[in-house]
């Protein structure tokens, strides 16, 4: 009997917990995903929240989802060392079934500030990413995965993303979170079809799927086109439910299907009701799939590393780090798309592996918006 687990992304957020409580009371939630590194502003954690984590951890149904590690930063930071320490201690306490992080590097100079942006797919970034994943695996002592990014600068990057993810996780025998709303952003923003893009992803490596909502943003550089953004602040669109139905049969090692939504978008009764209905619809799709497919549930051993991959020597690249700092500065301070484009042309990123000359105007515009939004946080 297969058993894909309908699951919730749940953090110490009162609005999110209030929306999730009916689902927990009705025993509909079979797995819990916790952004363990989002508690940095909280001095004290209520005992009842720790009890909730423990309840899922004891059943091996608790997974950790990192936000702030900044996998591809060219320079190792004290924040990353502390992040690993926190992960190690949390892993010993809660028995995570697996741990995941996001693709990209974070803009901004301070840990816990900034937005994740894409990086060039080079031997240097591959080595840094593999090194960091090995350190995460060493700290967590459980399977490690990476989530596909919603943002890309060009359609070429979109099509190479899956292959690069596969290379990154190979040394740790890792897995992928396939975020279907992130995929939806790529499909829409680059006018690519699901059938065209999905073969580029290593679907046998997908252990977790995310669904969520997002929002539309006007583009000044491409007025006829709206940009889809992964803001997690709305209900799940019909297109994403359709993607879920299409994707489930393609992922033989899938275990968790997770609904995500931010608590700040769950303050009204109407939004809580929509969240509840979205979860029930996701749950129905998953349970229907369980009832008609006979693959055994994958075990963690499927994605445990075959041998130790951890090396004491840090992989860093000063030139990459300098480019990341320069790009962050340009995006965070540009008064307009034109200003950012002009600065990029005369930056160290010009005529480099970053291929800034190929970046789509609407996506550079979005990167500016992202960097400036999160700089203020």
């Amino acid at each position: 009997m297969p058993n894909l687990l309908p699951s919730l992304a749940c953090n110490l957020d009162l609005d999110l917990l209030a929306a999730a409580l009916p689902l927990l009371e009705e025993a509909r939630v079979d797995g819990l995903e916790w952004s363990f590194d989002a508690l940095f502003q909280t001095r004290q954690v209520p005992a009842w929240f720790l009890d909730l984590l423990t309840a899922f951890g004891q059943e091996k149904r608790l997974v950790a989802h990192g936000v702030f590690f900044s996998l591809f930063s060219g320079k190792w930071s004290e924040g990353q060392r502390q992040w690993l320490k926190t992960l190690s201690e949390a892993s010993q306490r809660y028995r995570f079934d697996h741990v995941t992080e996001h693709f990209g590097f974070m803009t901004g100079q301070n840990f816990h500030h900034g937005a994740p942006l894409a990086i060039p797919y080079t031997a240097t970034t591959l080595a840094i990413g593999q090194d960091r994943l090995a350190r995460i695996q060493e700290a967590a002592q459980c399977p490690v995965g990476l989530e596909n990014l919603a943002f890309s600068y060009s359609v070429e990057d979109v099509k190479r993303h899956g292959e690069f993810l596969e290379k990154l996780i190979e040394p740790v025998n890792g897995f992928i979170i396939l975020d279907l709303h992130n995929l939806y952003c790529q499909l829409h923003n680059f006018s690519v079809s699901f059938e065209e893009l999905i073969p580029f992803y290593p679907l046998e490596r997908v252990r977790e799927i995310h669904i969520s909502g997002g929002s539309w943003e006007d583009s000044l550089t491409t007025p006829a086109k709206k940009i889809r953004r992964d803001t997690h602040d709305n209900g799940v669109p019909e297109e994403v439910f359709n993607l879920l139905t299409q994707t489930l049969p393609l992922c033989p090692n899938l275990k968790y299907v997770v609904l995500e939504q931010l608590g700040n978008s769950l303050k009204t009764e109407q939004s809580k009701t929509q969240f509840y209905q979205d979860y029930l619809r996701m749950e129905a799709i998953v349970r229907d799939f369980n009832a008609t497919h006979l693959n055994p549930i994958p075990e963690p051993e499927r994605f445990l590393p075959p041998q130790a991959t951890f090396s004491a020597e840090l992989v860093e690249d000063e030139a990459l780090y300098a480019q990341q700092v320069e790009l962050s500065s340009i995006l965070e301070t540009a008064g307009s798309y034109e200003e950012a484009q002009q600065k990029l042309r005369t930056s160290t990123l010009a005529h480099s592996a970053w291929q800034v000359e190929q970046w789509e105007p609407a996506m550079l515009e979005t990167a500016i918006s992202l960097a400036q939004k999160w700089k203020k946080k």
Partner: peptide
């Protein structure tokens, strides 16, 4: 998954009184 009722009650109380 069934959550212990004591945990659910504590969550409800925690949400209510913050």
């Amino acid at each position: 998954m069934n959550i212990p009722k004591s945990v659910l009650s504590a969550i409800l109380l925690g949400i209510t009184v913050q």
